[in-house]
Amino acid sequence: MKILVPVKRVPDPATTIRVLPDGSGIATDNVKWVINPFDEIAIEEALRIKEKQGGEVVLVAVGQQTWQEQLRTGLAMGADRAILVRSEAALDTLAIARLLAKIAEEQKPDIIILGKQAIDDDSNQVGQMLAEMLGWPQATFASKVEFQDRKCTVVREVDGGLETVAFDLPAIVTTDLRLNEPRYASLPGIMKARKKELKEIPADSLGVDLTPKLKIKKLDPPPKRQAGRKVASVEELVQVLHNEAKVI
């Protein structure tokens, strides 16, 4: 099975994010960059499928040259090769989906697995847009993926329960947190990653309209948490919860 895994580079979730004073973005100095954790789950799932039934795992990212680092990490985990669609400008989700659709048409994967969303902007759109553009079935928020011949069954995490859906390949699956626990790259894996193919394609060579439909106007940091206060009695606590916090 040929599996395409789109990968995004995001700030390490353990990093403290600071919003720039003018609200135009985040301060990127001293930020450690990692593979979007949901995409890491997608890579792991792709590798497990490959280990079970053979095939190829191809990574694709849309971004700047530095994104190579995350693709190399994915190759070190065990992916076979990677494609970096080079774009110096930041693109919106629609443009990314269009580029990925183009790559998918070229690469003809049996399945595309990607994170349900990136932890930086939490858009949760690319997988769905991609499915629409390709006219493929989609199963979002997957917590279990199984195959039988050219049929795929996915258990989805929905509000208040689980939903099981079945569909034919090719298809799009977006991963939820509980699908698997991604492996760490091994030393031999890291050493071998350098010899694997990492191809760069300029984004503007793909004949896709990249004009942004969406503009980020301003970022605001979350409000600082106020200090707590002590109450003297249960009566006062109930009063405060009722009158001030209005939770009871």
Binding site: R72, Y184, A185, L187, I190, M191, A193
Partner: peptide
Amino acid sequence: TEEQRMIRET
């Protein structure tokens, strides 16, 4: 080297 940095991060 790039590999050493990756090994260190991992």
